[in-house]
Design a binder for these strands. Structure first.
Lengths: 169, 169
DNA sequence: CATTCGTCGTTGCAAAAGCAACGAAAGTCA
DNA sequence: TGACTTTCGTTGCTTTTGCAACGACGAATG
């Protein structure tokens, strides 16, 4: 391909970024309006719902957020009473983060809305096409897994079906 | 779906974000290392290659960047001599931004590398699956197009095959 | 013409991201 | 035990983002 024929609008990374950002933004309208959550907070809470009391490091390893971002998201959530930090009994460094009842209530509110938006997107394509879509995404991830220049995938993204075993806390 | 069954790792918006970010990051390793470009600068330059001398607003409308971000990206590129701003003759407000020779040389360097990375990703899937993949993305965009809460798509992303007609400058 | 309105590009500013580095707490190994 | 290394969570700090507002310029309207 000669450089002159290069089209940004047909460039895969660009297309991915545009769609992803559009979807994310649409979603944050939802949980931002209802509970003032940003993406990082949303990911943290959802992870807590599944994995109970976990450490910052565990969240960092699972939901694709840098450690400082997790730490700060947790602080904000704690300030809003959606999450609580309790000093772990064993390892003095680890912190056990878990949802409060208010946090669970908030999720019970947001998750259906999020699922509904996801449904709008997925319902628009046939199940076979959707399966292909996810399969292609997985293939691309696999390519990056073999690329030493690419950032490794998180454990949770790798073994999507693996049993969740949060690090002991 | 009960909230307890909600998996972040199978949530479409999350998956999109993770793959998109991973791909983008891999790509910026490439053009960041070679020419110190960030995503915004890369998009601006590529757009200029196609559309010649255009205004900030035109770039903003085409490559999914907020106006201030375009303005600042152009400033940086100008400081590095990859781009030049000339006052448009007609409308005194508009600025004509175009690539310098150095800018074109840089692109001649980067575009093959970018295309190669894209190729690694797309070569890993069959052409039919890739076509389905893009079709699904387009369908999801269409859903968002009908959603009043979603941000509208840029013109260029809408009419991917439309003739490029930069606003007169 | 004069006034109002819309548009262009830029800047200010507050919030967020990314990265390195820190103190505290295990773990390791002699 | 004592020195060294590693890991955990947090914090500092610089750069970047996103949004609003601004001044400059043109178009539209009377």
């Amino acid at each position: 391909m000669t450089p002159d024929d290069f089209h940004l609008s047909s460039f895969l990374p660009y297309r991915l970024a545009v769609l992803s950002e559009r979807v994310s933004r649409r979603l944050s309208v939802e949980y931002g309006r209802t509970h003032g959550l940003a993406v990082a907070e949303w990911r943290v809470m959802v992870h807590l719902l599944r994995c109970g009391a976990v450490s910052v490091r565990d969240i960092h390893n699972c939901v694709n957020l840098e450690k400082p971002r997790v730490s700060r998201a947790v602080s904000r959530l704690e300030a809003e009473g959606l999450v609580e930090k309790t000093q772990g009994e064993g390892d003095g460094r680890l912190v056990a983060i878990s949802l409060t009842d208010a946090g669970r209530r908030a999720l019970a509110d947001i998750i259906p809305a999020a699922t509904r938006i996801e449904g709008h997107l997925t319902d628009a394509v046939s199940p076979e096409d959707l399966a292909t879509f996810f399969r292609v995404m997985e293939r691309m991830h696999a390519v990056l897994d073999d690329d030493p220049e690419a950032k490794p995938r998180t454990v949770m993204d790798l073994d999507r079906d693996a049993k969740i075993m949060p690090s002991p806390v």
